[in-house]
Write a protein that binds this DNA or RNA. Structure first.
Lengths: 386, 386
DNA sequence: TTGTGCACAAAAACCGGTTTATGAGAGTAA
DNA sequence: TTACTCTCATAAACCGGTTTTTGTGCACAA
């Protein structure tokens, strides 16, 4: 009976979001077209006379006009939102943010995104199918992927048509062709960093050196290669027993049955370390793939009376806040998580803006940070080492 | 010359987001109206015949149709996004996420939001003006505020017309009227928790008890009241000297010049604790307003040879991951940050959905967690206390 | 006087969905 | 036969912006 238009005339535009004034209403009240108002909003001087511009600006200010972002995004086919996706289980040790490395990285990402005038949508899931489903609906301008292995990253790329930057994804050689103007990676020289760390241990007289991690993929595998290289170079033999593998299971009965390694439930991580600590006797040093694991391992050692660094030396990785706060402070491989995240975000936004920076991969360099958890076993330590 | 429509006819709808198929195109290819397709998508059986429904569903599957979220949001005037806003300086100790309490809370929030089918936009700023500016443009369905004092929360409420839940905002009595169906708060019995902690210290023979914090507002002020109450009850006098106040400055020269307290730059926090530790001699125990400060303070003590708990007892607050990982493990007041965040998110989404749960404030109860940093000073300790 | 170009503003198409109003045809009761 | 209801489908309005196209009036050159 009554049509939309009639109603809107009757109620003079009081529909929908009642307290939001629209550009049409403004144009109506000022007796001009929406184009003119829009032009003023976008600072298109030259299209509008100075007087009109001023009049519009004043009015906009008066009514505290805020554009409807959905309408704007629809018209411009963008969103100014960056999707940040972590592929992670809940509770490696609590939730993924509790890992100081992740926390620092997210902080760096958030800041970079914000400073570039974008916004950040954060999404965590272990289920790649779920991730794929959402990724295509979000309509975000770009994607930042973290904790994602080859296959998953490839699948996301196939599904999502806009720019993507991965952090710490190690694309296998056979897939390395996927890097293009729409897909980049920011990583770290994990292998080299670990190589130098283990070389440092060897240089300080260690020969029985364990390698501690919870997996054999991605970043940790790169670190493992560095470890192996350092051992080989020093003529030290490696056996699988030297791999302090801690497999934890999300749910009872899950987890692929690896040939070796300690198993534990995700919420009983410390128990897993306690068991690993039983094997410590044969070693003088253990390289740990993350600081947090290093700290938990140190606690397990200390609980059985093994002192660090007197009885056992520990090398960590990341140099996160735990490393400097724990006592003895941790000797570790430093990487700047915040910077890494920020860099990835910047690369992504450059891609979104079409300012493409030729580089398809950026690889940062780690640094050793010597603190108090490595003992010098040499009989005549050379000067300058400690 | 050539109008839009002509072009679209010529190119058969190949404009805009080239790889996105629209509902109109689908309707065209199936020879039906968009209404019908839309009805199928929304599961409005009863409106569409079973055969048509099936035919549409099959086709949607085939072309892997994904609705344009901006168009949908515009039409429905919603976004399915929750805005999570932290008012924080960068780098209290790194960035705000590095605080395990915040990290755990964000984790809880993210999970709750995701499980309810919403998405999370994260925004951090110390600048309330900037926050206000964005808050009104985002068009998110609801807002979760954290680290926000009275005034700021009120200003946000004034600017943003949809549901808001604050976490740990202590609305002063004169403003308590702001709680309504659009505004709630989730908090903790901070005063009571601290009261019990300090009472525990007193019960273990401590009389000279310091209170350590970096501010005198919000949550920390509530804790301070609990501390004072416990002292008073035990007839212990308090002087401002007992307040171990650590004021840190974001930029040189900023910071209101308080009457007392140690000052330091934000990136020299440990130095600040070192100075605070100089005053430790007069005390047998210090209650710290957060675990992270407790750990840093303990490190400062240990650096000057003061042993915990032998020479000095420490009580923390939060029971975050540092508390259990540091050695000696920290005696502290436990609160479940993840749960707190999740609860706030759930409350908010209930409000968005119109399922209002009468309660305008939810206050959780803390618990003491006794570990190894408090010494029993009594000459004849009663049985059952450690 | 007649173009021609320019500054400015308005009209209308468009983004891609959702939703209301309308209608056609079949079945049924009066 | 008429009227009414029901089912299924379509047309068209609508959300609130942006952007292209068109139009008008005026100055200036030919």
């Amino acid at each position: 009976m009554i049509k939309y238009k009639d109603i809107s005339v009757l109620e003079s535009g009081q529909k929908g979001n009642a307290d939001m004034i629209t550009i049409k209403e403004i144009a109506g009240k000022l007796g001009m077209s929406t184009t003119t108002v829009s032009n003023v909003i976008h600072g298109k001087t030259g299209e509008v006379s100075p007087e009109t511009t001023l009049r519009v600006q004043k009015f906009l200010e008066e009514v505290d006009y805020v554009p409807n972002i959905n309408a704007r995004n629809l018209a411009q086919n963008r969103s100014k939102i960056i999707g940040v996706v972590l592929k992670a289980w809940e509770g490696k040790y609590g939730n993924i943010f509790t890992d100081p490395f992740v926390a620092e990285m997210i902080g760096g990402i958030e800041k970079a995104i914000r400073e570039k005038g974008y916004f950040m949508m954060l999404y965590i899931s272990d289920d790649i199918a779920e991730i794929l489903k959402h990724v295509s609906t979000w309509n975000v301008d770009g994607l930042l992927l973290f904790c994602m292995l080859d296959d998953d990253a490839l699948r996301v790329k196939k599904k999502y048509r806009k720019p993507i930057v991965c952090i710490d994804t190690y694309i296998a050689k056979e897939n390395s062709g996927i890097y293009d103007s729409r897909f980049k990676n920011v990583g770290l020289e994990d292998e080299q960093g670990t190589y130098e760390a283990v070389k440092y241990l060897i240089g300080h007289g260690h020969r029985k050196i364990g390698f501690l991690s919870d997996n054999r993929e991605g970043v940790d595998y790169a670190r493992f290669r560095g470890y192996r290289r350092a051992l080989e170079e020093a003529g030290i033999e490696y056996s699988d027993r030297d791999f302090f593998l801690l497999r934890y299971e999300m749910k009872k009965g899950s987890g692929n049955s690896g040939a070796f390694g300690i198993r534990c439930m995700q919420d009983e991580l410390q128990e897993g370390f306690d068991k690993l600590a039983e094997r410590a006797g044969d070693y003088t040093a253990v390289f740990c793939c993350s600081d947090i694991y290093a700290v938990m391992f140190m606690n397990a050692l200390s609980d059985r009376g093994i002192r660090v660094p007197d009885d056992m030396s520990i090398f960590g990785f990341d140099d996160n806040s735990y490393a400097s706060l724990c006592r003895p402070a941790l000797t570790t491989v430093h990487q700047d998580a915040g910077y890494k995240g920020a860099l990835a975000a910047k690369l992504l936004i450059d891609m979104i803006r079409g300012e493409d920076s030729s580089k398809s991969q950026v690889t940062l360099k780690p640094e050793l940070v010597i603190r108090g958890t490595v003992r010098d076993l040499r009989e005549n330590p050379q000067a300058g080492n400690g």
